[in-house]
């Protein structure tokens, strides 16, 4: 733009300052910008699309993880965030209209409100995440514990990052020679499970002694259910006897999807700040509001993605 400004000023007084040197007229530039933004948003949707496919595959294969995991999410906070985002979407749309009608003051107010909405969203998200971390729910392997284990989930020196090797039962257990082959493979299939994880393999051995004692599910259920019999709130996720194997997967997907969305909200904050800065400089008018319009489109899509994320994780 500055280049066009200096380059063309002398010989063309009709050309507005914001018109790039390669455009015929503002209309063409605006339409191109809009098409470009829509394409970019399509890539954004596809980016999340990959995660949504991952979500569907996991939900299809392991519905129990989602049933278990979703009760550890704070629906109230999620709902608040949904409302905040919807409101900020509204103020954003209002800001676009304000720019189109050349109402400078309203434009600034609306942009500020949108910015405030985005910040509020992240603050609430921060509290949600912190709470999860305090409960020991992290993205990644460190979270991966079996019920009844001592809670040393974030103690790197003990188990964290010790990648378990997976074992195949037929190989590790000396084969029962009397068993017919067909049965052996069934046993193997059962023990391997659909996810192929052998719980025993997680036990990290140090000095020949098993570090983690894994009680039988019956033991754990009995002891802990008694303890929590009269408590209304969900018990600590690690002690929950209903905790399915691979429960970490739900939270991993949760953190990945909401995390990526959070990054987009963060980008939105920078975007709003930049728009506000330019609005303060008086760049926008009913003649030129492309950045406001495109920023608005971006913000609506970020909002829309959350509208999908919220029910998928918190509600169903």
């Amino acid at each position: 733009m500055p280049e066009a400004q200096t380059h063309d000023k002398e010989h063309d007084h009709d050309r507005p300052w914001f018109l790039g040197h390669h455009w015929e007229n503002p209309q063409q530039q605006f339409e191109a910008g809009k098409l470009g933004m829509w394409l970019f948003l399509a890539t954004e949707v596809l980016l999340f699309g990959g995660l949504f496919v991952g979500y569907s595959v996991w939900r299809g294969n392991h519905p129990e993880l989602f049933q278990f995991g979703s009760k550890y999410l704070n629906t109230a906070m999620g709902a608040t965030n949904t409302v905040v985002l919807i409101c900020s979407s509204l103020t954003m749309a209002w800001a676009v209209t304000a720019a189109q009608q050349n109402k400078q003051k309203l434009l600034k107010i609306m942009l500020t409100l949108t910015l405030a909405g985005a910040v509020t969203f992240l603050v609430i998200k921060y509290f949600e995440y912190t709470h999860k971390f305090n409960e020991g729910i992290y993205p990644g392997i460190s979270f991966y514990q079996q019920p009844g284990e001592k809670s040393h989930y974030w103690d790197k020196s003990m188990v964290a990052f010790a990648r378990p090797t997976w074992t195949i039962p037929v190989a590790n257990v000396a084969p029962d020679l009397t068993m017919p082959m067909s049965e052996m493979s069934t046993v193997a299939a059962a023990a391997t499970g659909p996810a192929g994880f052998n719980a025993a393999a997680l036990e990290t051995v140090e000095g020949g002694e098993a570090l983690i004692h894994t009680p039988t599910p019956e033991e754990a259920t009995h002891a802990i259910a008694l303890e929590h019999a009269d408590v209304d709130q969900p018990m600590h996720h690690l002690q929950d006897p209903l905790r399915p194997r691979d429960a970490h997967m739900f939270f991993n997907i949760y953190f990945m999807m909401t995390g990526l969305h959070g990054i987009h909200v963060l980008l939105g904050i920078f975007l709003m700040g930049w728009l506000l800065y330019r609005a303060n400089k008086g760049h926008f008018s009913d003649k030129y509001f492309t950045p406001i319009d495109l920023g608005g489109l971006y913000w609506h899509v970020v909002d829309l993605i959350w509208i999908f994320l919220f029910p998928l994780f918190y509600l169903i």
């Binding site: 392997i141 991966y144 990648r163 090797t165 996810a195 194997r245 970490h248 997967m249 953190f255």
Partner: peptide, 18 residues
Amino acid sequence: LLIVERAFGIGIFNPALG
């Protein structure tokens, strides 16, 4: 996903983690 998988072990592609 693969970067996060490798850095933190989120398990989406890792058979050892399901």
